[in-house]
Design a protein around this nucleic acid. Structure first.
Length: 280
DNA sequence: CGCGCCTCCTGTGTGC
DNA sequence: TGCACACAGGAGGCGC
């Protein structure tokens, strides 16, 4: 389940391995992986072949790779996507979707995605910020993230706080796991109405979001393998740092009450019934 | 337009 | 043992 920390780990790994390299060939193994590239796979391949990758950037959970053509490759990992560096003679992964080879004959860039929620596309002229992802808000680790504007927009919404945290047009990079973790730290139930939160309460929550994302980025860095980009969202290392997510039936690490699981937005939410009482 | 529900997808775990 | 089904959930799309 890649959220901001996992995607950032991939970004730094990719930047190290593909920046400055020139693509010699591209193979699309599964059409669904490039479904967002509307002109189709032949066009996708043509726009990439012979191009040099200049950088690896990130906006929320999206990555994009500016090319020397002025276009960009956009990548989203979805639920199970991985971007791996693999030797050219390595066997195909079971769920290999797209494979990039380079003119230097070095490690290939492989997009592997079991559940095909992720995908790649090429954005024309999108080196600065591709149009396709311009609707994604800045993430809270971004130096240009505007706390005051975020608070105002959040408090102007008529929705629940967890829904707002997951709304990538309001604040990006936060997914189900880190939303639960930040809400637990802030002692807020996810169903709390956004328009009833005070400015200080929003500021505290935002600080907890930053804390948990920052700690996870550090943990993600340690699970990074030298030979390839490890994008395992289920990585055991950060699992041990979770205070809320997946802890149904276990004691709250703060007060000892038994943690509960609630169905919310068609997915699971974990919280402490004592520290995070449901709003009335 | 804001909000919230539905859908896409496949492997794993569980219960009968 | 095998089958059916719940579950995992990011994000676009659509209906109200």
């Amino acid at each position: 389940m890649p959220e901001l920390p996992e995607v950032e780990t991939v970004r730094t790994g990719l930047a190290k391995w593909v920046t400055g390299r020139t693509i010699s060939s591209v193979e699309v193994h599964h059409p669904r992986a490039i479904r967002r590239h509307l002109p189709g796979d032949a066009h996708f391949v043509a726009m990439l072949t012979g191009r040099t990758i200049l950088d690896v950037s990130r906006r929320g959970k999206y990555l994009w790779l500016p090319l020397d053509s002025g276009d960009s490759v956009i990548a989203h990992l979805g639920m199970s996507g991985q971007l791996l560096m693999q030797p050219a003679d390595a066997e195909d992964e079971k769920h290999l979707r797209v494979c990039f080879s380079f003119t230097d004959g070095g490690p290939q860039l492989r997009f592997v995605d079991q559940r095909t929620f992720g995908g790649l596309s090429v954005s024309e002229g999108g080196a600065e910020l591709p149009d396709e992802i311009a609707h994604i808000a800045r993430d809270p680790m971004d130096p240009l993230f505007d706390d005051t504007a975020f608070s105002a927009r959040l408090r102007g919404r008529h929705t629940e706080i967890k829904r707002a945290l997951l709304d990538q047009t309001l604040i990006s990079g936060v997914g189900n796991i880190y939303a639960d973790e930040a809400l637990w730290r802030a002692k807020l139930h996810g169903a709390r109405p956004t328009d009833k939160l005070t400015r200080p309460a929003v500021a505290r929550l935002l600080q907890h979001v930053r804390d948990v994302l920052g700690e996870a980025i550090v943990a993600g860095g340690t699970s990074f393998d030298e030979l390839y980009v490890n994008v395992n969202g289920e990585s055991g290392y950060f699992d041990r740092s979770l205070n809320a997510y997946g802890r149904e039936g276990e004691p709250c690490k703060r007060c000892g009450a038994i943690m509960r699981r609630e169905s919310f937005m068609n997915r699971s939410s974990f919280s402490c019934p004592r520290c995070q009482p449901r709003p009335r």
